[in-house]
Structures are given as C-alpha cells and as structure tokens.
Design a protein around this nucleic acid. Structure first.
Lengths: 299, 299
DNA sequence: TCGACCCCATGCAATTTTGTATAGCAGACC
DNA sequence: GGTCTGCTATACAAAATTGCATGGGGTCGA
C-alpha cells in the first residue's frame, strides 16, 4: 500500500506557495519553473479531493480555509526537513557543521555574540544560525537545535539544564538622572519617562505582578532591544537585565528596593540531538557561557 | 535559492528504510520498486556528502551513526505528512473526516469506546483512529490530533482543558476476598497477591510516593490493561481507577483510608487545529464525556 | 553440502516529470 | 488610453525517474 498520501515534494511546493503567495514566486523560491509549481498544486488538489486549495486570481493564489488549516503542518514538515539537512551537514561525531540557536532578541544581541565568539575560537569548524524571537520558537517543531529559554522546561522530549537566575532591575542613564527630578520612591516614577511594553500581553502581565502601580509608559515598544537602546540613550527609566546593565558604568540602578524581578534561565535541546557532537559542544558552551553571564549579574 | 536540501520524497524513502530495515521491505511498504528505493538512498548519500547513511549487507541495510541521528527528524516529517493528509481528509468546516486520538491503554479500552460511540451516533461522518500508548505520544510531533493526558499541559502551542480528577484506589474481586485472609490494615497486604508495575519507572515512582511500604508485587506487568484484567479475574489486589471499578459491582474497594491517589485529566489539542470543525467537535465531546466519567467516579 | 530464500546492484525500455516558449488576463502608472 | 508588469494556463520537446528483468552474493535450514 503506497497510498499513504501524496508525494512529499508536493507539500514542499504547497508550503512555498503559502509563504510566497503566488505560483511564480514559489517557483522562484524553490528553483523550479512556474508551470511545475502550478502542476504540483493541481496534483495536490486532485489528490485531496474535490475542494480546492487556492482560488486563482491575476494577483496570485489566495488560500482557501482548507489550505490555511494545512499550512501549519506543512511548516512543521519544512522545519523537520531543514533539521534533517542541518543534522546531515556534518558527521555526527564531528565538531563541525551548523548549529541553530533560538533565543530572545536581547540575549541574542547582547550576550550570545561573545559566547559564540569564544566557542568558535576553540571550534573553528562550527557555523551558527541565530533565530532571535521573543515568542519562544519551537524546538519541538525543530526550528532550532538549541534554545536559551526564560521559562521552565515544558516537555519530556527536551533536555533542559538550568543555568541560574538573571536579575531584572530599573535603570537609567546617568545623564538622564542628572537632568530629571528626584527618583527615590516608586511614586516619583509618575514624573519620569518610563520605557515599557506596548501590547506584549505575557510581558505586561509578568511585570504587572511585580510593579503593580506602574505609571503609563512614556515609550512603548515590544522590541526589547529598542527598550534597551532607549535606556542607554538617556530617554528614561526602563527594565534592564542586571548583568547587561552592569557592563555599562553609565547606567545607574534606580529604585533598587521597590522593584525586584528575575528570569530563570535554561539551556534547552532536543533529546534526539544528544548524540550529535557539535550540538553537544554548543550546548555545553551555552551552559557555561550563560552561567558566567548570570554570575556576572550577581556581583 | 532552491538548493535548500534534497527532494523531500527522498526523506520519505529514508524513513521507510529506517523503519523496515531493508531496501526491499521499504519498497514494498511504499509501493515502489526495490531499485527505486536503492536509487533514492544513493541519491541522498550523494547529496549529503561523503559519509554513507547505511552499510550494505546481504541481510539488509544497517544504519550508520549519521542515519540514526537523522531518523527522529525523518519521523517528525512523516508525522507532519500524516497530519496533512488527515487534515485534508475532509473540508475544514465539515463534521466529517478522520480524528486521531492519543490516550492511555486503559482510557482507550475502558472509557473512550462509549464516548466515541455516542459521538458517532450524532456525527456519523466522523472516523476515529486511536493511538493507545502510555508513553504520552507527541501531539507536538503531530502523531495525533487530540489527546487525553494525565499530566498538566506543558506547552503553549497546545490548547488544554482540565476535566477533573480521577481517583485511584485499591480494589479486589469479591470472590478473591471471600477466599483470602483479612485485609483491614496496610500491613495485611504482605499476605495478599498484589498486582503492580514491572519496570515502568515513572509509574513505580508515582506509586511509591503514595504507597511507601508496598510489598513486592505478586504479579508484575507494565500493561495496565493486564493489571485491570487480573484484578477482575480475582488474581489479587490492584490499583484501579474509581470510575472504572464502580461500574463493576463485583469489584470491592479495599484499604480505602490507607491508599489515596489521583490523576488529573486533561483534554489536549493542537492550537493549529482550533479552526478545524471536526477536531473541535471531537474535542468538545471528549471534554464532556471524560467529565462525566470523572464525575461518575466521585459517587 | 546443497538448495531455497532474501537481499542488493545494474542494464534497458517505458513512463512521468520538467522546462521552454507563448498566449491571455488583470491591475498600476504615466 | 496606452503601456508595463506580474500573474496563470497551455503546447511541445527534453530530461529525469521509474519499473522490469536479471545477475550476483550471502544466510538459514535440511
């Protein structure tokens, strides 16, 4: 019985069409010709039954409800295919090949570079890919090999190692403080420029718990790198990870007693990758590097 | 750039070869010819670089370390492909098509049948697949659409609904009790036939916590259906879910005060499937049916 | 030790899949 | 209103993939 579904290659085309929005664009992305992508989609539609996947138009293909329901699975398939080529990029027992790391934007921009630089110095054959997104992207969907996570490990299939706790505090640039009014009590914040989140529900909630009577933010953005940059530029007061703030002598902690929060940090990997040497090497390096980072913040 | 890895269809062949153990068997499973599968593997090996995936022998193909590292990703891909055909098996907005449900063996054999029977009565176009395994199989890997879980939801991408708590108790058949010695205190168990787990580490641990001084089991098996059958057959004393035991008047609860345990039950589904009507219908039916089951045990 | 069986590898013809070229259509912009 | 761009759909030839048949080699059991 070979009839267990269509040719997998058709799903790859489907995924590309969903992503690119038209047969022609998908053909370009895949390195195929436009008639071929069109035939692939036609073949899928024929194989799946009566209802069409797309409505054709001169402006491209618009996915039907069915196609929209299929899309996430196709993406999962694509992620697995990418993981396959990544894993095969070098022998399992070699300290070479591609390692794909998922982390938050702040960690990826402020902390990982030095860790990876050191690692590459000792392991010159490693190649890194960074997937920087705050929405903790799916290790389970194999979008990445390793991840730096701020939430406890959620899944048996994942191998997680805690590396400590990053303190969060309110900071401001000394130039800002020199020009602004007093900031000794939590209530003083009402007269200050406060940098915070815009719509990120999860982040807002977690900070609400810690900082119940926070005034309205003066600068709102969900991009934490922008928040950090704003604090450094002297715009106002914002939440900064202690170890990052302490590297910059111009940043001054404020309201140390009034605001306390922290992030528990984990390094996470797929259990499947346990035996792949380059992943293991990168895992260990991340554990060590992030541990050092966390300790630096405790000083 | 279309050169992002080999033809996906090759991975399907790879997965089949890993599963079946030989080119010929894989060819049979896929409905292809043996030369074709051989060529697929050869093409993969050529595409991935120097090191081979399999060592050829007259008894089949033996996977190398690299191939073993690739296998789980290929399985993930296969699961996603299966989910695609399943999802496409009927229009998204139809109360028809295949719904794949993961649950423990006991739930699948003792509880689900009546729930699904009732559901099928009101929705005759639904088709069900049961994946009965105690190792909570991966919803995230898209092995199933829905799951009945005894552990709290671990993943953001999953939509989980608690349906209550199933009590666990020690039970024995009345015929057994009529012939055996007294059973009033926990210590009396030493003189009884006790049915329990064999090697299932997780299960053993969870029961050790509840029943510290449990004697050595007289009948050991990790198959919980066999445990249940043994209790029903009057072999001895075993742990049974209250709602299941109470349906059978010949089963008598014993040591009610000494042993108390419970399982929190959740119905879990992929967030991706939220908009697929048949999955939603089955989800709601499972929530209602399992809630009723749980309540039945509280009587 | 022989035979039966299952396995992989290879040559060749048929089929399938793909690409090229082209036509037709809808919207954007001057 | 005309032109330009981007899209899909179709005809036909080239290329690639597949299946069939067959050969060679190893393992198991009588």
């Amino acid at each position: 019985m070979g009839s267990s579904g269509p040719d997998w290659e058709l799903w790859r085309t489907f995924d590309a069409v969903m992503r690119e929005g038209s047969l022609s664009a998908a053909a370009r992305a895949l390195g195929l010709s436009q008639p071929t992508t069109g035939r692939h989609i036609a073949e899928l539609e024929a194989a799946l039954g009566a209802d069409a996947l797309f409505t054709r138009s001169a402006r491209g293909l618009q996915p039907t409800v069915t196609a929209q329901a299929l899309a996430p699975h196709a993406q999962a398939m694509a992620a697995a295919a990418a993981a396959l080529t990544r894993t095969a990029s070098a022998p399992t027992d070699a300290a070479a090949g591609v390692v794909r790391i998922s982390a938050s934007e702040v960690i990826g921009a402020e902390v990982l570079p030095s860790i990876l630089a050191a690692l590459r110095w000792s392991q010159p054959s490693l190649v890194f890919e960074l997937l920087l997104t705050n929405a903790s992207s799916d290790l389970l969907r194999r979008d990445a090999d390793l991840a730096v996570r701020m939430t406890p490990p959620q899944q048996k299939a994942l191998l997680a190692k805690p590396v400590g706790r990053i303190g969060l505090g309110l900071y401001a640039h000394r130039n800002y403080l020199a020009r602004s009014g007093p900031l000794a009590k939590l209530e003083d914040l009402a007269n200050h420029a406060v940098i915070g989140f815009d719509r990120d529900a999860a982040a807002l909630r977690s900070f609400h718990a810690e900082l119940a009577l926070l005034p309205d933010f003066t600068l709102r953005t969900d991009n934490q790198l922008a928040q950090l940059a704003a604090v450094r530029a002297g715009f106002g007061v914002g939440v900064v990870q202690d170890p990052i703030a302490q590297r910059d002598p111009t940043l001054v902690p404020v309201l140390r007693e009034a605001f306390v929060a922290h992030l528990d940090v984990w390094i996470v990997m797929h259990e499947d990758l346990r035996t792949t040497r380059r992943i293991r090497i990168a895992f260990d390096a991340l554990v060590e590097g992030m541990s050092a980072h966390v300790r630096a913040g405790e000083a």
